[in-house]
């Protein structure tokens, strides 16, 4: 089985992705992660204004039989939350890299981006 791993994203070993576009940075979980979890039924996310610390859990994603923490790839401040997920957590399964995004954040330290995996390194990890 092969999983979608977009080339333009950065990744954490714990299966979160991060996309930087001009002003905003988006964070979510990968195709591999959503497949491992199975049907997502619930997601718990912080609110706009909350602080993120790189490597620490910021939320929880649940399927029927499993609960997983979601870890912050970088430190920063939450600027937006994908509220569509509260009513349609299945977006995480259906479209993990686009419609299923979780947070937008303002980075505290751009240097932290260098610590993340690139697509090739992440592909190696999940294969």
């Amino acid at each position: 089985m092969s999983f979608d791993v977009p080339d333009d994203l950065r990744y954490l070993e714990s299966h979160e992705w991060l996309r930087t576009e001009s002003e905003t940075t988006r964070i979510g979980i990968t195709d591999f992660a959503q497949d491992e979890l199975g049907d997502v039924v619930f997601v718990e996310l912080p609110a706009a204004g909350d602080e993120l610390t790189a490597g620490e859990a910021f939320g929880v994603v649940e399927s029927i039989k499993a609960v997983s923490d979601i870890y912050a790839p970088v430190s920063g401040t939450v600027t937006a939350v994908n509220e569509a997920l509260f009513d349609q957590p299945e977006l995480i399964n259906e479209d993990p890299f686009e419609e299923g995004w979780m947070l937008e954040a303002e980075l505290a330290d751009e240097g932290e981006l260098d610590e993340l995996l690139d697509a090739d390194a992440y592909r190696d990890q999940i294969e």
Partner: peptide, 12 residues
């Protein structure tokens, strides 16, 4: 909603 319960969430 069994993810609240001990057999899945254990110490949490």
């Amino acid at each position: 909603l069994q993810t609240r319960e001990q057999h899945i969430r254990k110490e949490r």
